[in-house]
Simulated assay, not measured.
Amino acid sequence: MASEIAPDYFDPLGVDPEQARDVARWRRAERMRLCALRKALSVEARVAIEATLSMHLKDLLAARFSDMRNRLFSAYWPIKGEPDLRPLMADLHAAGVRVALPLVEMKHAPLVFRRWTPETRMVRGDWNIPVPPQEAEVVTPDVALAPLVGWDRDCYRLGYGGGYFDRTLAHLSPRPFIIGIGLQAAELATIYPQPHDIRLDAIITEEGLEVMHGAKFTEQL
C-alpha cells in the first residue's frame, strides 16, 4: 500500500464523493460553532490571549530563525474575531523585519502578498478587509501566519472554506514557513484532511507551541 511506504500519501482518485460531502457538511457546522465561540470571548480574555500569542510567536521565530531582520514576514488583518496581532506587526517592522499582508487580487486564484508598514494607507479589498494599495510592492514571504478557525495535532487547519490559503501554499515556490495562529479551544481531533488540504509547519495558541511538523524543528526547540 502506498500509505505504508509514505504515510502522507493520499490518492485523490480514491476519494469517496459521499464521504467528501459529509466532511464538507461537518466542516460547515464546526466553522459556525468555533466562530461563535471565538466571538463570545470577553474583551479582557481577548486582550490576554493576543498578548500571550505574540509572546509565543516571538519565541518561535527566535528559535527557528535566530535573526528575522530583512526576512519577509506575512501577517494578516484580523476579521471575525481573529486574534489581533497588529501590534506585533509594528514591533517586527521596527526591528527590521519586512512585513507583508495577503490579499485577493483575483477570485479563486492564489493570494498576493504586498508590503506593509505602520504608515501604509490601507484600502478596502475583498470582503471589505483593509489591504495595502495597488502600488505597494508585491513580495514572497519567508514566514507566513495562517489564522485558524480550527486545528488538529497533525498540523492541519480548518479555515473559512474558500480554499485561498491552500491554493496559495500549493502555488508558492519556495514555500514559506507557515505558522497557524488560533485558540486552544479550537482544537479538533481531526479536520478529516482532504487531498487539497496542506499541512502547516507549526501551530501556536495562547498555551504556546502546540505542534510542529517535522522532528528536526521540534528537537531544535
Rank of each mutant, 00 (worst) to 15 (best):
M32N: 08
L111W: 02
A202R: 03
I49F: 01
Y156M: 01
D67Q: 14
Q220V: 09
V23I: 14
R33S: 12
L169C: 12
S42Q: 10
G81D: 03
A36N: 14
A146L: 04
A2Q: 11
F65W: 13
L145M: 10
D8M: 07
A51E: 12
D59M: 09
L53G: 02
R31T: 00
M55F: 12
A109T: 03
I198L: 15
R64P: 01
P193Q: 06
P193L: 10
T117G: 05
A40S: 11
T52H: 12
A20I: 10
E207D: 07
V112P: 00
L61G: 05
R121N: 13
C35A: 07
H108Y: 10
E4F: 06
G214S: 11
S3H: 15
M32W: 14
I79A: 04
K107S: 05
A24C: 06
T168F: 03
H213N: 14
P87K: 08
R175N: 02
D201L: 03
E135A: 13
A94S: 01
Y76I: 00
H213S: 11
R33L: 10
R69N: 10
R115F: 12
R46S: 11
R199E: 11
C155F: 03
R121D: 11
E44N: 13
L188H: 03
P132L: 04
T117R: 12
Y76N: 02
V47P: 00
N70E: 10
P133N: 10
F73L: 07
L145K: 07
E4G: 07
D197A: 02
E210S: 13
A185L: 14
P17Q: 15
T218H: 00
L200I: 02
M68E: 05
V112Y: 01
V139W: 06
P87I: 05
R124A: 15
D154T: 10
H93D: 09
F65D: 02
D22R: 14
F73R: 02
A95I: 05
T205R: 04
M68I: 08
L60C: 07
D22P: 06
L188V: 03
L72A: 11
S173T: 03
A24F: 04
L103A: 09
D8T: 05
T117K: 04
E4R: 09
V131D: 11
L111G: 00
P147S: 09
I129M: 06
Q194W: 08
L183C: 00
D11M: 00
W151F: 12
A24K: 09
T218I: 02
G161L: 06
A51S: 09
V123Y: 01
V131I: 07
A215N: 11
M68W: 06
F113G: 01
Y160Q: 10
A48W: 06
E207W: 05
T52F: 05
L13F: 04
P102V: 14
A63Q: 09
R175T: 03
A2L: 15
R98C: 08
